[in-house]
């Protein structure tokens, strides 16, 4: 703000680069349980979109069914939202992306929505590389139907009902990598700094960006014996790196000791910096990523951060040889072929 103004201005609310206040990125009041991990993620989404200065009207908020899917109502009131049916949000996101490739799609799903009923669609969305930020608020249980186990509950964990999980968990990060995803991250709802940074980077990514966030269910899956509880996640989280995001409209100035950090350039000109921590980890190495995830599953380790990153996978809209304008807005002259074209087709039937 200019310093030439003589009198200090009346305390104007803080605004972002679009001149919008944080309020304009908020949504309806949450109706989730007090202390729910999802609410922390909602706050991170609000902050990330505010920080990035994404115009709310250009955002499409998409979700399926479940506690997590309700949260799209709790952020970005100025954006269109679509709370769809259980497990099918990935398909809705695919259609919405094709209709208007300029929309910023943020999909919020849960472990039931994605890892069980919607597993197939999730795989195919990733495989197609639909341009969407896809968050899984992963609590290892079905909160809205009172705590049944989900497919991401780790083997051997004891559910509140007393049932011990016998099946292998679905690792959505490993699956996403297997399906060819170019942006795969894992985080913890309590690590708000990391969640926010990951969301920003995901928005800047071209293609599907999957962030699997352990988000404890304080009501049904927060007890001892659960690997998705607040205490367990907090005590076991091991970040792969310290991450920072520098948006394309800001100058990058990084001064790390050589060899201690990696700077990754994204297609839109943004940068991700990954500062090395205890684990020596390279997010560009697909096989290393799968190995890490496999190791983490076997040893019950909870690594967080950008597990895999490859900005060079073509997104679906580019494969479709699409015009730049949204299909949704084409005038009749662009979508109805001419009389001559019609006549030429009719001739083939005569």
């Amino acid at each position: 703000m200019s310093s030439t103004v003589a009198a200090p201005p009346a305390k104007a609310p803080k605004t972002n680069r679009l001149g919008l206040t944080m309020k304009e990125y908020q949504g309806a009041e949450s109706t989730l349980c007090a202390g729910c991990g999802h609410d922390a993620i909602t706050s991170s989404i609000i902050k990330a979109f505010y920080d990035l200065g994404v115009p709310p009207h250009m955002v499409a908020k998409l979700s399926g069914i479940g506690c997590s899917s309700k949260t799209t109502n709790y952020f970005l009131n100025g954006s269109h939202g679509f709370n769809t049916v259980h497990g099918r949000m990935a398909t809705i996101a695919t259609g919405a992306n094709m209709a208007n490739r300029h929309l910023v799609n943020i999909g919020v799903s849960g472990d039931g929505d994605t890892a069980s009923i919607g597993l197939g669609h999730f795989c195919h969305m990733v495989r197609r590389n639909v341009h969407v930020v896809y968050l899984i608020e992963n609590n290892g249980c079905y909160g809205l139907t009172k705590g049944q186990a989900s497919a991401t509950a780790d083997k051997g964990t004891v559910m509140k009902s007393g049932i011990t999980i016998q099946s292998q968990p679905v690792d959505l990060c490993a699956l996403a990598i297997e399906m060819g995803c170019g942006f795969v991250a894992r985080s913890f709802s309590g690590d708000t700094q990391q969640v926010r940074t990951l969301i920003k980077a995901a928005v800047a990514h071209t293609g599907t960006a999957v962030i699997d966030i352990v988000s404890p269910c304080v009501t049904f899956n927060n007890h001892e014996g659960s690997t998705k509880s607040q205490v367990y996640a907090r005590d076991h989280e091991e970040p792969l790196h310290e991450m920072d995001f520098i948006p394309h409209y800001e100058n990058i100035s990084v001064d790390y000791e050589p060899g201690t950090a990696k700077v990754v350039k994204m297609h839109d000109g943004s940068h991700i910096t990954l500062k090395k921590l205890e684990v020596d980890y390279d997010s560009h190495d697909r096989l290393r990523a799968l190995e890490l995830l496999s190791h983490a599953r076997n040893e019950n380790l909870f690594y967080t951060g950008l597990v895999y990153f490859n900005p060079d996978i073509k997104p679906l809209d580019e494969h479709m040889n699409l015009i730049d304008e949204p299909l949704a807005q084409l005038p009749e002259s662009r979508v109805r072929p001419s009389q001559e074209a019609f006549a030429s087709i009719m001739k083939t039937f005569a």
């Binding site: 499409a60 998409l62 269109h80 679509f82 769809t84 049916v85 099918r88 990935a90 398909t91 809705i92 996101a93 695919t94 259609g95 919405a96 992306n97 094709m98 209709a99 208007n100 929309l103 669609h121 949204p326 299909l327 949704a328 807005q329």
Partner: peptide, 10 residues
């Protein structure tokens, strides 16, 4: 699902 998504987006 894709049809509904595309249609919803116009």
């Amino acid at each position: 699902g894709m049809v509904l998504g595309a249609s919803w987006a116009g």
